[in-house]
């Protein structure tokens, strides 16, 4: 959904116990990323912030010198979110640490509230244990559902596993979260911009150079790429007009000259075009990936619809 003006983007951080959520948030809070992030955690116990970085402590809130804050939520999470939305100097971003047993998608729903805008759901998975957990009799369904609800999966602790285990974890994520982006990390170190959703990634399996999926896959992908200038409003309309079986589309469009680049997302039937936060000097053109339910992907139809959006093709 498009962020409403002045709404604070909310990023939900999920993942099962031990996946590395707290470690990642610790690094983010202390990081030098120039953004004011408020992090909501279940309890301070596990957050360890370098005393040198702390500006003030006030009950449930620790304020840091870099403008970030960490709030411990003991009561109603929704109320805590609303309080931040109403604050005199609201942060640039809010990150919510979901409990290990929460379905992060449900937590993210709390952010659909005045003054807030859900941005994305990030789910961490511990490469060492995630495949076992996904088969566990108590939490297997929960762990798989968490992955399925992710926009971005952080496959964490890759330094602790061999190729075989990493391969198994990658395969699990590809199966359970076929339309999520995936980033691999160790010690929960992920670029802040990536977590904040300012920069998109294309997961390898769906990047343009990835091999096509096998026939048994649930989803199939198609890549459309051009080096010509693209009419962005026309492109947006064309993507919006694709059939509902196209469950996800994303990509980047770069104009000619010095103008800003754009990121295009389609989730379900909603299309969202947002300027890229950082000017990236790349050649003009576009690269878009389309993901559709297996057996419903009409590559030719997509190509025809999109080729009509090239500046040379669009009639006034």
């Amino acid at each position: 959904m498009a962020d409403r003006p002045n709404s604070i983007p909310v990023i939900t951080i999920g993942g099962y116990l031990g996946a590395g959520k707290t470690t990642m948030l610790n690094a983010l809070l202390a990081g030098d990323h120039g953004r004011r992030i408020s992090v909501l955690v279940n309890d301070f116990g596990s957050i360890s912030i370098d005393e040198k970085l702390i500006l003030a402590r006030d009950g449930d809130v620790v304020t840091l010198v870099n403008g970030c804050a960490c709030c411990s939520v003991s009561g109603d999470l929704g109320e805590a979110l609303d309080n931040i939305a109403r604050a005199r100097t609201p942060p640039d971003y809010i990150m919510v640490e979901a409990s290990g047993v929460a379905d992060p998608a449900r937590i993210a729903a709390l952010a659909r509230s005045p003054g807030l805008a859900p941005r994305s759901t990030v789910v961490l998975a511990d490469c060492e244990t995630v495949t076992l957990r996904a088969d566990d009799k108590f939490v297997g369904r929960l762990v798989r559902r968490q992955l399925a609800g992710a926009d971005l999966v952080v496959l964490n602790k890759i330094d602790l596993v061999g190729d075989e285990q990493l391969g198994a974890a990658r395969a699990l994520v590809a199966r359970e979260a076929p339309i999520a982006d995936v980033v691999e990390a160790s010690h929960g170190l992920v670029a802040a911009d990536l977590l904040l959703g300012a920069v998109g990634t294309l997961r390898p399996a769906f990047a343009c150079d990835a091999p096509d999926q096998d026939a048994a896959a649930t989803y199939q992908s198609h890549c459309w790429r051009t080096t010509e200038a693209v009419n962005i409003p026309a492109l947006r309309d064309a993507i919006a007009a694709l059939p509902a079986t196209v469950v996800r589309a994303k990509g980047i469009v770069m104009p000619q000259g010095d103008g800003p680049g754009f990121e295009i997302h389609r989730v379900g039937e909603r299309v969202n075009v947002t300027p890229l936060a950082h000017a990236r000097r790349t050649a003009a053109g576009a690269e878009l990936v389309f993901i559709a339910l297996a057996g419903t992907l009409h590559r030719n139809a997509i190509d025809i619809a999109l080729n009509a959006c090239l500046c040379g093709e669009v009639r006034a």
Partner: peptide, 22 residues
């Protein structure tokens, strides 16, 4: 605009119930 609130119906449910619970 609130999630799980239908103000025309005066209805607050699940996550939306927090707007009235306190």
């Amino acid at each position: 605009n609130a999630h799980q609130v239908n103000i025309e119906r005066g209805h607050f449910y699940e996550a939306g119930n927090r707007h009235v619970r306190a």
